[in-house]
C-alpha cells in the first residue's frame, strides 16, 4: 500500500506532529511497512465473527454514583507546564 505525501501530512497534522520534508521518505516507508503487516490480517476469513471491541470478556463494569475524594487543585496543577492562579495556562486558542 502506497502512502502519498498529502496523506502523510494529513496524518501528521491530525496527530499534531511536525514532519519536515527530509523525514518524509523514511516515515512513508515505515508506515507502508506497518500497513503491509496489518494487511496480512485480511488474509483471515472473519465472516460471521463479531468485531472485538474490548480485550476483556467483562461487561457492565460500572461504578455507583458516589463522589470520591477529589485530587486537590494544588496537586492537579503541579505537573502542568504552565499555570496561572486557579487555572492551567495554554497558548491562546481562538475559535
Amino acid at each position: 500500500m502506497n502512502i502519498d505525501s498529502e496523506t502523510l501530512q494529513k496524518i501528521a497534522h491530525l496527530a499534531r506532529l511536525e514532519l519536515d520534508a527530509s523525514h518524509e521518505g523514511q516515515m512513508k516507508k515505515d508506515l507502508e511497512e506497518i500497513l503491509e503487516w496489518v494487511d496480512k490480517l485480511n488474509e483471515l476469513d472473519t465472516d460471521g465473527i463479531e468485531p472485538l471491541t474490548n480485550m476483556s470478556f467483562e461487561v457492565n463494569s460500572l461504578r455507583e454514583d458516589k463522589v470520591t475524594e477529589p485530587l486537590s487543585q494544588e496537586r492537579g496543577l503541579r505537573n502542568a507546564p504552565d499555570k496561572e492562579g486557579d487555572y492551567f495556562k495554554v497558548p491562546k486558542v481562538l475559535e
Binding site: 461504578r63 454514583d65 458516589k66 463522589v67 470520591t68 475524594e69 477529589p70 485530587l71 486537590s72 487543585q73 492537579g76 496543577l77 492562579g85 486557579d86 487555572y87 492551567f88
Partner: peptide
C-alpha cells in the same frame, strides 16, 4: 453526583480546577 467516568464531583460554580 459524580462524573461519568470518575468519582470527582459534578457541580456547577465550584472554584476552578477543584472537581478533578
Amino acid at each position: 453526583e459524580s462524573k461519568i467516568f470518575s468519582g470527582d464531583g459534578n457541580a456547577f460554580g465550584s472554584q476552578p480546577n477543584t472537581n478533578i
